[in-house]
Structure formats: structure tokens, C-alpha cells
Amino acid sequence: MAAAAAAGAGPEMVRGQVFDVGPRYTNLSYIGEGAYGMVCSAYDNVNKVRVAIKKISPFEHQTYCQRTLREIKILLRFRHENIIGINDIIRAPTIEQMKDVYIVQDLMETDLYKLLKTQHLSNDHICYFLYQILRGLKYIHSANVLHRDLKPSNLLLNTTCDLKICDFGLARVADPDHDHTGFLTEYVATRWYRAPEIMLNSKGYTKSIDIWSVGCILAEMLSNRPIFPGKHYLDQLNHILGILGSPSQEDLNCIINLKARNYLLSLPHKNKVPWNRLFPNADSKALDLLDKMLTFNPHKRIEVEQALAHPYLEQYYDPSDEPIAEAPFKFDMELDDLPKEKLKELIFEETARFQPGYRS
């Protein structure tokens, strides 16, 4: 834990890192770190609560700039109880001085990944967590956004079992017609939660990839272990087919990539493993919904509104309290091709509203 900075004593240090967030945020305490930044909790002297502050230093890398800009653009436009918001952003007053960006968010005690390492969940908890994931996802999908990296560590939890989806750095506007060349190379989302079509096709992607990830998360809540822990690309596919069985001819016809289709045709026939054999203690309604989410063919996979209306979630289902976005989200430009200098300018502009004396 960093010592509390005395008023006016300059930035606090946390594990050798400068955290320049005073005077409003003090009493910093280390939480963890990701690929390009550290997260601390801090005391907000204005709202009198502890908050989470993520320090991001992305400006050396085009990919990190892209992810940072995506996350900020999306989260500043989203407003939903099951999606983490941005409360404040701290950065230098000029673009030349801006080396880091500090993002202030609600402090959540833990995440689903940490929880599943230590606790076996009751059916009631599984049901409530799944409902909140789908409630947040309904809003995301209504904005025409794909999260693309749903996994237990991106689901934040607090002691009252509130759940918030975080990390929109890989999110995209849904565009089933656009052929994202190089899709697989830039697709760094965790393999275990990846839909089979991501490994088999490169053309376009749809909201059904997020539903697949939610199915993987439900299976993990039922058993405290990942359902498809593939060691590499082909191993991942083999794990999936080992449980779902061989795809039907109709399902194979959806695979545009001939090499991928021929690979699947070359494999020995596998039978589907019954879900109640894998999860003998699970609620039968939970397994019915799991089956509809972990469907090989993305066109037959359940959609988020149908999933919310499934009998497993009937005690929570309330369409009048499951809000959607006001308007579909649009990125003005494809960020993939922009140089990091341009992305830095866009991050600077996007964060201006939090600067003292800002006038829109």
C-alpha cells in the first residue's frame, strides 16, 4: 500500500510507478496490472468513496492506442447498470505532455475469474450472474457493438453480487458484411471463450460470437473449470467437437473457408456428449439454455433477447427493466489503419471533457 500523499506533496508512487492523480484522489492501494497499465484503488475526496484507477501508458504502440481509444469512446457513450462506466479521466493539459491516461471507475471487490478459483456457486448465484451478463449484453448488442472478449476476468463483482462487464478494448461495431482481413492475426481474445466460426472463417462476425462466450462462462460457473481449455488453435476446435459432436452437413455448409471445411470433413465422426453427463448436478433449465448458447452453427445460436426470456431466468426476466441503447454506435473511421500519432490526438480530444474549465 502506498503511503497517503500529504496535501501538495506531488504524485504518489505505487510499486515504483508514478500515479499522478492528486489532489482529488489519494490513499492509493495496488490492485493489479494488465498488459499496459496498473490498477489501484484510491480515495475520492470529492465523492467520499474509494474508486478504481487504471493507469494506461499506450502511446508507444499502435495496438494499445487503438484499444484505449475504443474503450474510452464506447464506455463514455454507454450507460447501463451492468456495464462499468467511466467516472473521470485524468491526463496532462497538453498533448505533448500526455504520456499516461488515468481512467477512474467504480471500485468492484472482485471478478468472476477470482471468485470461481475459490468458491463453488449455488444455482441461485449462477442464475443471477447469468441474468446480469445477458442484461448488459442486450444493451451492448442493441448499440450494434460486439464485445468480443467476454470471459470471467472481464466480469466485475461486488459483495452485493452486482455484476458489471468491463474491458471493451477489443470491441467492434457489428459488421457481418465487412471482410476484416487479418482478423485472426489481430484477434487476441482469450482462445477458450472463442466461437468456432472465428477459427473457421475470417469473413465478418456477428453478435452470436458473444453468446458463445457467455455459454462458455455459464459452463464454467457450473463446474469451476473452463469447458474448452484448448492449448492452441486446432486443439481448441477438437475440444469443442469432442463435446458438441461432429457438425451436420448443414452446419458445414455455413463454413465459407474450404480449407477449414475440408479439415472438419477429414475428422472421424464424434457423438455429442449429453450435458447432464458433463454437469450431473446442474439445473435442467440451465443445461437447456447452455445447449442453445453453445450451438456450433452461429445462425442457430440463441440471441440475447431470447436467452433473457428463457425459463431458467424467469424469476428475473423483465423486458421493461432491460434497457437498450438510445442509438446504434458508430465509429467515424476504422481505427485499425491509423498511425499511433493520430490515435493519440483522438484520445486527447475524447478525454477533453474531463479537463478543468472544459467548454463543449
Rank of each mutant, 00 (worst) to 15 (best):
A2K: 00
A3T: 12
A4M: 08
A4I: 02
A5F: 00
A7G: 10
A7L: 14
A9R: 13
A9H: 04
G10P: 05
G10R: 14
G10A: 10
P11K: 14
P11Y: 04
E12R: 11
M13D: 10
V14P: 13
R15A: 12
R15C: 12
G16K: 08
G16T: 02
Q17S: 04
Q17C: 08
V18I: 13
F19V: 15
D20A: 11
P23E: 00
P23I: 00
P23N: 00
R24V: 09
R24L: 14
Y25K: 09
T26V: 12
T26D: 08
T26K: 10
S29G: 03
S29E: 06
I31R: 01
G32S: 14
E33D: 14
E33Q: 01
E33C: 02
A35R: 05
Y36D: 03
Y36A: 03
G37W: 04
G37C: 07
M38K: 15
M38E: 12
V39N: 03
V39D: 02
S41M: 11
A42P: 03
Y43G: 02
D44K: 03
D44R: 05
D44Q: 07
N45W: 04
V46A: 01
V49D: 07
V49T: 06
R50I: 00
V51W: 04
I53C: 01
I53Y: 00
P58M: 03
P58W: 02
P58T: 15
P58G: 01
F59Q: 09
E60V: 14
E60K: 14
E60F: 01
E60D: 15
H61A: 00
T63R: 12
T63S: 14
R67E: 12
T68Y: 00
L69I: 06
E71A: 00
E71Q: 02
I72Y: 00
I74R: 09
L76F: 01
R77C: 03
R77H: 03
F78N: 12
F78A: 05
H80Q: 15
H80G: 06
H80P: 04
E81C: 10
N82D: 10
N82Y: 15
N82H: 10
N82I: 15
G85P: 06
I86K: 05
D88H: 09
I90S: 01
A92K: 00
A92Q: 00
P93D: 04
T94F: 11
T94H: 08
I95R: 05
I95G: 04
Y102K: 07
Y102L: 07
I103P: 02
V104C: 02
Q105T: 08
D106E: 15
M108Y: 08
D111I: 00
Y113V: 10
Y113K: 10
K114W: 13
K114R: 14
L115I: 01
L116D: 08
L116E: 10
K117D: 09
K117G: 12
K117T: 07
K117L: 09
T118R: 11
T118D: 05
T118F: 04
Q119E: 08
H120T: 04
H120M: 11
H120C: 08
H120Y: 10
H120W: 09
L121M: 15
L121Q: 15
N123W: 08
D124Q: 08
C127K: 12
Y128A: 03
Y131H: 04
Q132L: 15
Q132R: 10
I133N: 15
L134E: 08
R135S: 14
G136M: 02
K138D: 09
K138T: 05
Y139P: 08
H141Y: 06
S142N: 01
S142I: 03
S142Y: 02
L150Y: 05
S153M: 09
S153P: 00
L155T: 02
L155P: 05
L156D: 10
T159Q: 14
T159F: 12
T159G: 10
T159S: 15
T160Q: 07
T160G: 10
C161D: 03
C161S: 15
D162Q: 00
D162R: 02
L163M: 10
L163V: 03
C166P: 10
C166K: 10
D167C: 01
D167R: 02
D167F: 02
F168T: 01
F168K: 04
G169I: 00
L170Y: 07
L170V: 01
A171T: 14
A171H: 09
R172P: 06
R172W: 03
A174M: 04
A174E: 13
A174Y: 04
D175Y: 15
D179E: 13
D179I: 05
H180R: 06
H180C: 09
G182S: 11
G182A: 12
G182H: 13
F183T: 07
L184W: 11
L184D: 14
L184T: 10
L184E: 13
T185P: 15
T185F: 07
T185R: 12
T185G: 09
E186C: 05
E186W: 01
Y187M: 04
V188K: 08
R191M: 09
R191Y: 07
Y193P: 07
Y193C: 08
A195P: 07
P196Q: 12
P196A: 08
P196H: 14
E197S: 10
E197D: 15
M199Q: 00
M199Y: 07
L200W: 03
S202M: 10
G204R: 14
Y205E: 13
T206V: 12
T206P: 14
K207R: 13
S208A: 14
I211S: 13
W212C: 15
S213G: 10
V214I: 12
V214P: 12
G215T: 08
G215W: 03
C216F: 14
C216S: 15
I217G: 07
I217C: 06
I217S: 13
L218I: 12
L218H: 09
M221V: 05
S223Q: 14
N224R: 13
N224E: 09
R225C: 12
P226I: 03
P226E: 09
I227Q: 03
F228C: 00
G230E: 00
G230N: 00
K231T: 05
H232D: 02
H232P: 08
Y233E: 07
Y233W: 01
L234H: 11
D235S: 08
Q236I: 09
N238T: 13
H239M: 09
L241E: 10
L241W: 08
L241Q: 00
I243F: 15
I243P: 05
L244N: 01
L244M: 14
S246Q: 01
P247Y: 02
S248R: 09
Q249R: 07
E250I: 00
D251F: 01
D251W: 02
N253G: 10
C254W: 03
I256P: 04
I256Q: 13
I256N: 14
N257S: 14
L258P: 13
K259W: 02
K259N: 14
A260M: 02
R261G: 09
Y263C: 11
L264C: 03
L265K: 03
L267H: 01
L267K: 02
P268E: 11
H269C: 10
K270R: 12
V273F: 03
V273G: 00
W275Q: 08
N276R: 08
R277C: 07
L278T: 10
F279V: 12
P280D: 09
N281Y: 15
N281I: 15
A282W: 01
D283R: 03
S284F: 08
D288E: 15
L290K: 04
D291L: 12
D291I: 03
D291T: 02
M293F: 04
L294C: 10
L294A: 11
T295Y: 04
F296M: 07
N297A: 02
P298F: 01
P298R: 09
P298T: 15
P298D: 02
H299T: 13
R301E: 09
R301P: 06
I302A: 12
I302F: 15
E303M: 05
E303T: 06
E303I: 02
A309N: 01
A309S: 14
A309W: 02
H310S: 06
H310T: 02
Y312R: 11
Y312N: 15
L313F: 08
L313T: 08
E314V: 13
Q315P: 05
Q315S: 04
Q315V: 00
Y316S: 00
Y316W: 01
Y316V: 09
Y317L: 01
Y317V: 00
P319L: 11
S320N: 05
D321V: 15
E322L: 04
P323N: 02
I324N: 11
I324A: 02
I324T: 00
E326N: 01
A327F: 00
A327D: 14
F329W: 01
F331C: 04
F331T: 00
F331D: 06
D332S: 06
E334C: 00
E334L: 01
L335S: 11
L335I: 11
L338P: 05
K340G: 14
K340C: 05
E341A: 06
E341G: 11
E341R: 10
K344H: 06
K344T: 09
E345K: 14
E345I: 00
I347L: 12
F348N: 07
E349R: 04
E350W: 00
T351E: 12
R353A: 03
F354H: 13
Q355E: 10
P356E: 11
P356S: 14
Y358N: 11
R359Y: 05
R359C: 01
R359Q: 08
S360C: 12
S360N: 13
